[in-house]
């Protein structure tokens, strides 16, 4: 059995709930394992009373199918946030706090313009996430190579292994210039690679994302969105072939925990 991290009274994380979000429980658990005090909060409660946000230092937009992914993945929820909570979320980031979007949460952050962000966050819409080239939802494990040293969630020198499970995970940009901006602005957080760190085609890049992009960060490095699910690799027996690695525990390090631990550590040190 896994021992939970020592819960620090200082670090409080909110896991957003809304119709169709369905990875909130395991995300809540991963945060608690990392030592945060986590709470799942329905979006209606935040819209009723935005000051709830002040209690937290981390907000996670978890995976799922918010509002059924109707129209497009994450679209209806991002529209709801834009019209009711955008300023509050922006203030949360400006206060130096952390935002993490996983899978559907990543789609929401991109579609409301928080990612890749920048001066005109919210209005800027030259990056999007669309249907996988394979045309279908797929659940499979991928290797991720960090691309930045300035995102607080990421260990820059550690390649990690996590599952993706999505039908709309292909990161696209409006044009070459938009892609160039992502690169030069240090927005690319993770790329899909093979075991040896090399980029490749499907299934190494499971959705044919441009430039193998698996995750994005903003200019502050305190907002991260990614398609893969770190909350699904927080114990050794979640590795897809853990039964082969019993005698080599070093090969099986619960890579998902790095992201949650780094977030908690950052809050402990800085907030």
């Amino acid at each position: 059995m896994i021992q939970k991290g020592k819960i620090s009274n200082g670090v409080k994380a909110m896991v957003l709930r809304a119709a169709g979000i369905n990875c909130d429980m395991e995300t809540d658990y991963a945060l608690e394992l990392a030592g945060a005090k986590a709470q799942r909060v329905h979006i209606n409660r935040i819209i009723e009373d935005k000051s709830i946000l002040e209690q937290f230092q981390i907000i996670v937009f978890p995976g799922g199918f918010s509002y059924g992914d109707d129209v497009a993945a994450g679209k209806i929820l991002s529209n709801q946030i834009i019209h009711h909570l955008f300023d509050a979320i922006q203030r949360f980031i400006d206060d130096g706090k952390l935002v993490l979007g996983i899978c559907n949460g990543f789609q929401v952050l991109v579609k409301m313009g928080i990612l890749p962000g920048g001066d005109s966050a919210g209005a800027r819409q030259d990056v999007s996430i669309t249907y996988n080239d394979s045309g279908k939802f797929e659940d499979r494990w991928v290797y991720l190579a960090p691309q930045t040293r300035s995102c607080i969630f990421i260990e820059p020198d550690r390649q990690i292994y996590l599952p993706v499970a999505h039908g709309e995970g292909k990161v696209v940009t409006k044009d070459e210039a938009a892609l160039e901006n992502l690169k030069s602005g240090g927005h690319i957080a993770f790329k899909y690679v093979d075991k040896n760190g090399q980029e490749g085609t499907y299934p190494i890049n499971p959705n044919n994302s441009v430039d193998s992009i698996a995750g994005l960060t903003d200019t502050t490095g305190r907002v991260l969105g990614l398609m893969p699910h770190p909350e699904r690799f927080v114990r050794a027996t979640q590795h897809p072939h853990w039964s082969r690695l019993r005698n080599t525990p070093a090969e099986n390090r619960c890579d998902g925990m790095t992201i949650f631990r780094n977030a908690v550590r950052f809050v402990q040190r800085n907030l």
């Binding site: 429980m25 939802f137 499979r140």
Partner: peptide, 15 residues
């Protein structure tokens, strides 16, 4: 099999 999310809820042990 891959079209089904068999890992949501974080509960899988033998997939």
């Amino acid at each position: 099999i891959r079209q089904y999310d068999h890992e949501v809820q974080g509960s899988s042990v033998v997939k």
